[in-house]
């Protein structure tokens, strides 16, 4: 559906985007993950036809978006990182304006405003001025303004920045709902957990480059890191670590205070055996904490720094 090939963008001597390539297929929720300044927003700006690349190509359904701006723009919905709305106008007036900018009018415009206000769950507050809205409501309206013209692909640039957890969950659920309705989504964020929750494909960007891409499992597999299991016991026996190491699939076990820290593969099958060994040693388990490797770990592994550095 969308193919980005060797995309470059320079601002003076700074290469904001440095040879980025990826492909988004119809129905994907495609995540662009990276810290602030990684080049995600610049990449998004080029895909949404706002910025011209210094070099490279972007194809939409096999055709260059440079040659088909008009039709591509009608097929894309863009949710900017900022609240790009008119605060002194009402929610309804904002939706009506953005709908008309996309060429909607009359009954169709009214119908779409009704539908979109259902999706973003703002129907009861559309008459209020936007500057009276909470941060979460503004974010939802910001998304709504990009949905009016029924786009095939929705590009969302950090749509949850600066809002409370409840509003964030609402937006994440909205994104998944939209995807189920058939909208392909490109979602940028520096929140690892959002990307993990939403995306079936992920590109990790840092300093203008893609440092890893694939499905979440593929990315985790790439760093070959094992699941960490922390077993907290009622009392500690110095031999227990050695006994647990004997379990097939456990690669490492060490004692830390009242907890045995293990690393291994396939945590689900290991847990039963761990419980048995502990019981044989005359102890019992107070708690077990399983930590699977995640995208944060992938990023840390690849760059040597945390996502929010």
């Amino acid at each position: 559906m969308l193919k980005v090939e060797n995309l470059y963008k320079s601002f003076g001597k700074i290469n904001a985007v440095d040879g980025v390539s990826f492909e988004v297929k119809k129905g994907d929720v495609f995540g662009l993950l990276g810290p602030n300044g990684a080049g995600k927003s610049t990449t998004i700006s080029m895909i949404s036809t706002l910025l011209a690349p210094s070099a490279g190509e972007i194809l939409y359904d096999g055709k260059s978006i440079f040659d088909n701006q008009k039709s591509v723009r009608q097929r894309l919905g863009v949710v900017p990182q900022e609240i790009a709305l008119y605060p002194t106008l009402s929610g309804y007036e904002n939706l009506r304006f953005w709908g008309s900018i996309y060429g909607l009018k009359g009954d169709l415009l009214k119908k779409r405003i009704d539908e979109v206000s259902d999706i973003i769950e703002l129907n009861g507050r559309l008459k209020d001025r936007v500057d009276k809205y909470s941060g979460g409501m503004k974010r939802r309206l910001n998304i709504g303004a990009a949905l009016l013209h029924t786009p095939e692909m929705l590009i969302m640039d950090e749509p949850t920045v600066g809002i409370d957890p409840q509003s964030r969950n609402h937006i994440l659920d909205t994104v998944l709902r939209l995807n189920k309705q058939g909208i392909t989504i490109i979602y940028t964020s520096h929140y690892m957990e959002e990307v993990e929750y939403l995306c079936n494909k992920v590109c990790i960007m840092d300093e203008g480059k893609i440092i890893a891409s694939g499905s979440q499992d593929e990315l985790v597999e790439m760093i070959r890191e094992k699941t960490q299991i922390n077993v907290r016991l009622n009392r500690m026996d110095s031999l227990i670590a050695e006994k647990l190491k004997e379990i097939n699939g456990v690669s490492d076990a060490r004692i830390s205070d009242d907890t045995v820290v293990l690393h291994g593969e396939n945590a689900d099958t290991l847990l039963a055996e761990i419980a048995l060994k502990v019981s044989e040693g005359g102890m019992f388990i107070k708690s077990i904490d399983v930590k699977k490797p995640n995208l944060e770990a992938v990023f840390l592994h690849l760059t040597g720094k945390a996502l929010r550095d």
Partner: peptide, 13 residues
């Protein structure tokens, strides 16, 4: 500055 200009450009204005 409010990014509404960019949004209008993206919308084909």
């Amino acid at each position: 500055e409010n990014k509404t200009y960019q949004r209008m450009i993206i919308a084909g204005t």
